[in-house]
Design a protein around this nucleic acid. Structure first.
Lengths: 112, 112
DNA sequence: ATTATCGGTATCCTTTTGTATATCGGTTAC
DNA sequence: GTAACCGATATACAAAAGGATACCGATAAT
């Protein structure tokens, strides 16, 4: 594999990283794959995430076309978030990551 | 899928995240999968990474048993870094990430 | 009247990550 | 003599991410 090829790969991995970087995005997606649509539902499903961070992360995910945000004219207002079809392309990767994480936890025994 | 199952998944994805988080680790691994072993080689293969950050990231990767560090008694001293067999379990995931990133770049056209 | 809902935003602060630059000691090369 | 190698560490700083807390308006519920 030549140098140019690697440089390309580095660009692509950077794009991947940009789309899902940070402490919370993967967790948010995992929860949302399971059909949690409302802000509070998502928040309640993820231990320790603040509304401030969740709000920002959802915005990022929307910009990257991984989720949609639909506003309903109710009282109080209702917002629904949903993973896009495009986001489903990420699901098998995230599943593999999760499996790997499980395995890693066992491999690095004693780590908390 | 029940709540407990999701909470487990969140733990595992956190473990995954802890192992490879940050701007540089994935890039470092990509370069190292391609058999770059020496500190300077790795650094020269990754645009814009500083020696300070590379040093720290390599240390993290070693702690997580993803790479090994071998010291040779030469003058000047020679250090070789190598991906572990264990780290090879990550390779297909990273490959999928890279492919996804390439696709994402095209999907989000116009983004730099 | 107060409290709750809803999905946020505002403000302030702390922590973490990352950048830029210099330096280290024991050699070797020019 | 100076510069280079080697893989770091030191220092100072900037930027980003994340945590903690309070608050918003238009209702509805108690």
């Amino acid at each position: 594999m030549n140098k140019k090829h690697i440089q390309e790969k580095l660009k692509y991995i950077e794009d991947f990283y940009t789309a899902v970087n940070g402490k919370w995005k993967l967790s948010i997606l995992i929860v949302m794959y399971n059909n949690n649509k409302r802000f509070k539902e998502i928040q309640n499903s993820i231990p320790k995430i603040t509304n401030r961070v969740l709000s920002k992360e959802l915005k990022d995910l929307e910009v990257n076309k991984l989720i949609t945000r639909t506003v309903y004219d109710t009282t109080p207002v209702t917002i629904e978030y949903e993973v896009t079809e495009y986001c489903m392309t990420l699901k098998p990767i995230i599943q593999m990551m999760t499996d790997w994480g499980k395995n890693h936890r066992e491999t690095i025994a004693g780590r908390k």
